[in-house]
Amino acid sequence: MSEVLFRVDERLIHGQVVVGWGRRLHPDRIVVVSDDLSRQPVEQDIYRTGLPASIEAVFWNFREAIEGLPALLDSGKSIIVLTEDLGTMLRLASAAVTIEEVNVGGLFAGEGRTRLLPYVWFDAEDEQRVRDLEALGIRVVAQDVPTTAPVRLRERVG
């Protein structure tokens, strides 16, 4: 069965994604949406290190993502779509990429951010982006790995 995970995680491809979610979803492809990383092949190689041969990782800029994702989502493949921030995920949703749920897996401490969960720190913009995503009918949940209980973030941001 094909499944799609849209995840916001500053660490992008790492252990929780490859082992935790990867063993659950058996993704054919990981799509990282990042204008910066799409231009950095050396950084991409670091992220690809240790990926099983069965998973292809691609690094798309935003334009490539909105052009390529609809067909990929219709292809029946299992896919993990990763962004470093909620803003990029909101832009994808606003550009008519079909998203039912956004998984927040890692936004960490930084200036202006307060702690909601050990692995979820938000500033005011992040809170607003959760409201905006929910207003588009998209559930936003925090869940670092599949075995932990999901936490609906709309209820945490007021």
Partner: peptide
Amino acid sequence: DLEGGSCCQACRRLLGRDSVRAVFY
């Protein structure tokens, strides 16, 4: 610990910086 995990990625980015000579995973 895990090749490709966030720990390993952080270590790889430090390779060659300061005194870091090698990263074993």
